[in-house]
Design a binder for these strands. Structure first.
Lengths: 109, 109
DNA sequence: TGACTATATAACTATATAGTTATACTCTTT
DNA sequence: AAAGAGTATAACTATATAGTTATATAGTCA
């Protein structure tokens, strides 16, 4: 699908999703979840923020369809389930990485 | 490049870029520039906002390396120069479009 | 049931930013 | 040089949101 074929409704959704993805803490969480499934407590530990803060970020990511959660016992596990999401993240990293390298020098090294 | 290989410095850049892209008015401008080069006055007309507002948005897009500008006479022309940027936009539209369709039904139709 | 653990939510504060208005800058033309 | 056109910037207001603290909700075990 090209940019042209995006309807206003989808453009709104995309803008919301990007806003959710465009946060350092949430990118950190996404990077972590790229490696597999983690429960909230583990994520809190790994990203170094408060439980309430991480929970809120996870809620936003889930609402944007970027992650899914599953309750097992007392824990809630989060994961990147959809390959589409991985592809979006990968495309952003790859292409923007190249762009930055070309224009600003070896910041990515 | 996978998510794993993104350095903290690049992650910061990516987060900034996404924040710039994640705005309805700027997405509208990017969608327009996808079709070719336009000067500020034309963009103002097409997107339906004030000159000052559009100029500020264009400045942010340029700073994020998403567009480039060139002054010719009195006009300043903006364009999406880098194929990497087009690829990022395309990947986002394609994959998130699919995702939304799968999960929320035919919002994109 | 009561104590405990894991997660989510509410209320609040501080900060960032989209849009507006007014003005400055730059180039062209007479 | 002066006037006008095209674009950028400064100052301001209103709104959104990241993070914190305190509390609520849900599941587990004694």
């Amino acid at each position: 699908m090209t940019f042209d074929q995006v309807t206003p409704a989808l453009a709104g959704k995309i803008s919301e999703m990007l806003k959710v993805l465009a946060d350092p803490m949430r990118l950190k969480i996404m990077k972590l979840l790229h490696d597999g499934e983690f429960c909230v407590g583990d994520i809190v530990e790994k990203v170094g923020s408060s439980q309430a803060n991480v929970s809120k970020h996870l809620g936003l990511l889930a609402q944007a369809l970027l992650v899914r959660s599953e309750k097992r016992g007392m824990q809630v596990y989060y994961r990147i389930e959809d390959p589409e999401v991985s592809k979006i993240c990968e495309a952003i990293c790859t292409h923007y990485g190249k762009l930055v390298k070309k224009r600003l020098g070896a910041l990515a090294s």
